[in-house]
Every structure is written in C-alpha cells, then in structure tokens.
Design a protein around this nucleic acid. Sequence first.
DNA 1: ACGATTATTGCGTTCTT
DNA 2: AAGAAAACAATAATCGT
Length: 324
Amino acid sequence: MGEGLAVLAGSLDTVRTMATRDIYETGFDEDVRTESSANQCPECDGRVTTNAVETVCEDCGLVIDEQRIDHGPEWRAYDDECERTGAPLTVARHDRDLSTEIGRGTDAKGNGISGQKRRRLARMRREQTRGRWRSKAERNLAHGLGEVRRLASALELSDTLRDQACQLFRSAQNEDLLRGRSIEAMAAASVYGACRCNGRSELLDDIVAVATVGESRVTNAYKTLNQELGLPAKPVRPTMYIPRLASDLDCPEQIRRRARALADAAEDAGVTTGVHPAGFSAACLYTAGQEAGRWVTQCAVAESGNVIPTTVRAHYEILKEQVG
DNA sequence: ACGATTATTGCGTTCTT
DNA sequence: AAGAAAACAATAATCGT
C-alpha cells in the first residue's frame, strides 16, 4: 500500500513537471511542415519550408510561393437543387462582396442620364446605402473586417492569411466574444491568431505596432479568442526569434546560420520546452558567437531579446552540454 | 563581463469552503 | 463549483570576482 502510494506520487510529480514545462509547447504535436531541401531562398539562401498554404524562408521570412487551393467551378448534376455561378465569394468583406452598387452618370450602355431619371437613381442610391447594414452587428462586422484588412496589409501578409484572419473575426462575433471588447482589439487578435495558427514568426509586438489599441487589450482579446475557439495555435519556437535578433545585433551571416542550427538541434532534443523562446534564441546567438571567437557579450544578446543575462547564461550552459 | 546565490513570478495541482 | 494554498520550474535581481 505504502509502496504503491510512493509510486503514484512519483508519477504525479512527473506529470506536474511536464505540465509546467508545457507552457510554451501547447498546440500541435505533429508538425505538418515538410522540408524541401531542393529549394533555397533567393534572398539569403536560407532553408525553405512548405506548409499547407505557402512556401516561406525560415531565415528572412520571405514568402516564396503560395499554394492557393482552387477547386475550380462547381459542376453539379441536374437533379441538384441549386447551381452556383458568378464571382467567387470572399470572407474579407461583410457582405462577401455580393452587394449591389448603383453607379451614376451613365446607364448600362454608356449613355448619359438626365432629368427625372437621374433624381430617381439618386434616391435609390441613398436608400441602398441606408439599407446596406441590416443590423448593428453587420455594421460592426464590416468595421472589423476593414480593420483586419488594414492590419494584414500593413504587415504584408498573404491573402490566404488575411482571409483566415477575417474568418476568425467572423467566428469571434458569432460566438459573442466582442462584448466588452473593442472591435479594433479583436481584429488585431484575429490577425495574430491567424499568424500563430500558421506557425508564422510574427510576434504580438509586431501586430501591436500597427494596431490602434494597446497591447493589453489585444492580449485580452487573443486570450478569449484562443480559449473560446480553441485555436490550433502552434507554439512560439526559439528559431522564430533568430532572424529578428540577428538583424537587431547586425549579426554576421555565418554566425546566424550556426545559431539556427543550434536552435534546431535543441528543439529536436526537446530542451526548449517551457523556456522563454527569445531567451533561448539569444543564448544560441551568444553560443554561436563564442564558437566563432567572442562576437557579442551576454548582456548584448540578452538586451535585444528582452531578457536578463542570467537567462542567457542558463541556456548557454545547456547548449554547451548539447555540443559536448 | 561573467559566475554564483537569492528573490520573484507565474503556472497547474490540490485541498478547502 | 469556486477560491485558497502549498509546490514547482523558470526568470529576474543582486552581489562578488
């Protein structure tokens, strides 16, 4: 009995430890990305990975190719109830771009319009504009999607990613997550969520930098978004910080490559779970610098990674063990 | 600058109300 | 079921060399 309890206590301890180390490791277990060693980034010769939506350089973040999914037109049998045709729908506009615009000046044949007819058209246009938003919710949706589009454009995200963000915003509104939160905050959170779900290296700071609201509000919105919708967000990995920190420190190409290799090896070895990604990344750069003969100090890399030298030191020790 | 030691923080678990 | 508390790992702060 006593022995059994001891064993149970031991296993519980292990479980708890693992749970604690899981903070930065939540999300997908399997990595859907596949490496294509044949491809190299034209900008920096970095390694290139391809996922479901795009091919992107891991070093500089350059998007090399997008794999758009085009299922072609829908061909259906005659006994199907409906046929669909026309321009593709988009999730990026509140009315999916299906609304009618009433032009001015000319009719369909390009002839001029005058007099009574013009006044009638003007009235129709006014009513059309008034009736465009059937409800407050729809108005909010249009506002939110506009903001998402603006953010996506400011961050130079791909159309695919932008549409995912728009879809997230729609879901957020459908789940009534906007209550008590600003539309701008949820829009920013949607963009961030889309980035995280695709394993992109954009950080919260990057989104906040172009957002119109403060970081805390975006954080709050993203938290609820993540909780309520159960986002398949991928963990933030140390390798995501390497290019950022490297350019921040004017790092030589060779050292950056070495730091990447170190970070990759560490991730494979599973020693990066539960640690501050930026801190570990900073340690990788420091270690690579040491190997190449004292390139930067611990303090320097720590500062650019927004951590303290102690943290860099702790991971530096681990990296030395790894190498040796 | 680097290393060692101590303090703080944030987390999930577990016990309690 | 919700909150308090003890326990733990990672990080920050501090001091000494």
